[in-house]
Amino acid sequence: METTDYMGQIISVTVTDENEQDYFAQKDGVTFRIEKSEFDKPHQVTDAITGFAYENEEHELQLTTKLPMVKIGHYAWATVVASRRDLGVFVDIGLPNKDIVVSSDLLPTIHHLWPAKGDQLLVSLIVDKKGRLWGQLADEDIFQEMAKKATQQQNNSDVQGIIYRLKIVGSFLLTDEKYIGFIHPSERDAEPRIGQKLKARVIGVRPDGVLNLSLRPRAYEAISDDSAMILAVLKHQPGNVMAYTDKSDPEAIREFFGISKGQFKRALGHLMKLHLVEQADGKTHLLGDPDQPDHA
């Protein structure tokens, strides 16, 4: 067999030699290095060892008994450790002295949407004609096979997940609970990177079980301290109505709220924009409670 036939495979080899740091073992005349630090007990010549075959960063054939989760034909999450614009991103799949490249051909054409260090990609391994191992990104079918169908119980909940696909229509995410989520461009301030882990909130559940997500905060999370103070005052007024509006005397506002009229007007304007309050008949009225899902 060719040396390239062993790359990325789990094979059994026979120990033929050793030095202070390594064992040397062969299969069909091909020699692999195995680090002694992987074993609790010493091995002897003719012992059989089973492990994962690969070429390390020094271009030496190596075997490791610490089998990676990512394999040929088997997908697992791998962490991005580095990036090279002319090549792609490097991911750690658990091999000693070897990171695997996910080719730039598989990544977005816009470089700032590439995964950053610490991001995660769902990958398997492929071997090219030269015996080199590459990371292969999971396609949509793989994520559909993994995914569970969401129910309406997930609505208005908070989720975490990893962005796995970028399209013009929006971003796709797989949550920690294995639900697929979709983020429309209107529900984000900036397009996330592929591989980026995000927190989002569920704003709807589609009939096919996909979550519609938003990266924008709920209304009560987005309001300022001044707006929150005005809401608190309104909640404790009879009928949830107060006599202060953006036309009120500046000194009266400072006396009651402890803030300037400019601050008061900005805070009140924000609450009106969120449809939480309205001004009518020279008074300010509370329209709804931002703590409730209807105002998420």
Rank of each mutant, 00 (worst) to 15 (best):
G135K: 02
R254E: 14
E20L: 15
I162N: 04
A219F: 02
E57D: 15
V91W: 01
T151G: 05
V169T: 11
G51Y: 00
D225Q: 15
Q9D: 10
A252C: 04
F264I: 01
H285L: 12
A147L: 00
N97L: 06
I183R: 01
V30K: 06
L271I: 03
A78G: 05
A116L: 11
S186L: 10
D17F: 10
Q21Y: 14
V169I: 12
G262N: 14
F39S: 07
E58H: 14
G288A: 15
E177G: 08
G209A: 07
S171R: 05
D246W: 07
R165S: 14
H285V: 03
H43C: 07
E278M: 14
M272K: 14
V101H: 02
H275D: 12
V70Y: 00
L106S: 11
V30E: 07
D86E: 13
Q279V: 13
K178G: 03
K41Y: 12
L133A: 13
T16F: 06
Q44R: 15
G209S: 07
I49H: 04
F39C: 07
V89E: 02
Q279D: 06
E55T: 12
L286H: 11
K27E: 07
Y220K: 09
Q279P: 03
R206Q: 12
I253D: 01
V45E: 04
I194P: 01
Q154I: 00
D289C: 09
V210K: 10
L122K: 11
D139M: 14
V15M: 08
A219I: 03
L211E: 02
D119Q: 05
K129I: 06
Y220T: 01
A200G: 09
K129Y: 13
K261D: 14
P250Q: 13
L174F: 07
L67R: 12
A296Q: 08
S214I: 01
K247A: 09
G258I: 04
M242G: 05
V233D: 09
L122F: 13
V89Q: 02
K148A: 08
E20H: 13
I100E: 01
L276I: 08
R201Q: 13
N19M: 08
E57M: 15
K197Q: 14
L125D: 01
A138T: 08
Q26N: 08
A138Y: 04
R193A: 06
Q237K: 12
K197R: 15
T4I: 09
V45Q: 06
G94D: 01
D139F: 12
F143Y: 15
E55A: 11
H285P: 02
F264L: 06
D105M: 08
Q26F: 05
K148N: 11
Q153R: 12
L133R: 03
V210F: 05
E60H: 11
T151C: 05
G288L: 08
L106F: 10
G118W: 07
V101I: 13
A150R: 00
V81N: 06
V233H: 11
Y6H: 10
A296M: 04
D141Q: 15
S12N: 10
R266A: 08
M69V: 03
G94R: 05
L271M: 12
A116R: 09
L137R: 11
V70R: 03
T151E: 04
R266I: 08
K178Y: 14
L286I: 11
L125R: 03
L137H: 05
E20Q: 15
E58S: 13
S224C: 06
K265P: 00
Y220S: 04
E20V: 10
Y54Q: 03
I110P: 00
I183A: 02
Q196T: 03
S157I: 02
